[in-house]
Simulated assay, not measured.
Amino acid sequence: MIQQFYPQVPHSYRYELNKDMHLAAAHFIPDERAGQCQEMHGHTYFINLTIAGDSLDELGFLVNFKRLKEIVHKRYDHTLLNDHAEYEAVAPTTERVAEQIWKAVQQELVTLPNKPNCLQVVVRETPTSYVVYRPKAEELQ
């Protein structure tokens, strides 16, 4: 994977972890206004998660990198995004994929004793197009 640089999230936490991953998935946007994107097509998505917190767990991790990959990669890799329950009522645009990734990651983080937060999700759909999702402060623990 080529080294990527992403927008920085201003915060005052002691620790910041960034996890890059990629996955292959297909989707379509079922609306004629989407143009060519209304036809099923695939992408190699590049994803970056920014996790931050003030405390480490008993092993010295903010969160285990492996667990982050399981939450995202295992769920979406080599799938048709439209088939996932979270996209039954809405189209899996890159914006919505970034938001759903945040929700899945944050749902796991709130269960950890050290209470880290996911501050940013970047989803790159093509070499020239990406989305940044940042939750509002009230959505964080």
Rank of each mutant, 00 (worst) to 15 (best):
L109K: 03
A104M: 12
T93C: 06
R33V: 12
Y15P: 08
Q106C: 01
T79L: 10
I51C: 00
V72N: 06
E58N: 11
E95P: 00
D20K: 02
H22D: 15
N117P: 01
V105A: 07
E108R: 10
K19W: 04
K69M: 09
L59M: 13
N48G: 09
L17Q: 14
Q100K: 10
F65Y: 15
P7M: 04
L68E: 02
N64K: 10
A98L: 03
D83A: 09
R75F: 06
S12I: 12
K115W: 05
Y76S: 07
L56Q: 10
H22Q: 15
H73Q: 12
S55H: 14
Y87V: 04
L68F: 01
A89D: 14
Y13V: 00
A26L: 01
E32F: 09
Q38M: 10
W102Q: 00
P92D: 08
E108Q: 13
T94I: 12
A34K: 11
H73C: 10
E95I: 00
I71T: 05
G53S: 07
R33C: 09
A52R: 08
K103R: 13
L81I: 05
H22T: 11
G60L: 03
Q100V: 00
W102K: 00
T94K: 06
F46T: 06
A98I: 01
N117H: 11
S55Q: 14
W102R: 00
A26D: 08
L49A: 06
N64A: 14
L62K: 05
P30S: 09
V122H: 01
T94G: 08
I29N: 05
Q120M: 13
E58K: 09
V110C: 07
L81F: 03
G42V: 04
D83H: 05
P92E: 09
N82V: 06
V121G: 01
E86W: 05
V90E: 10
F65S: 10
N82R: 05
E16I: 09
H27S: 14
H84R: 13
F46R: 11
D54F: 02
Y45L: 03
E32Q: 14
F61M: 14
C118K: 05
T93Y: 01
F61V: 08
A26I: 01
P10G: 05
D57S: 03
A85F: 12
A52T: 10
H43S: 13
A25W: 04
H27Q: 13
P10L: 05
K74E: 15
V72L: 07
G42K: 03
A34L: 07
A24C: 11
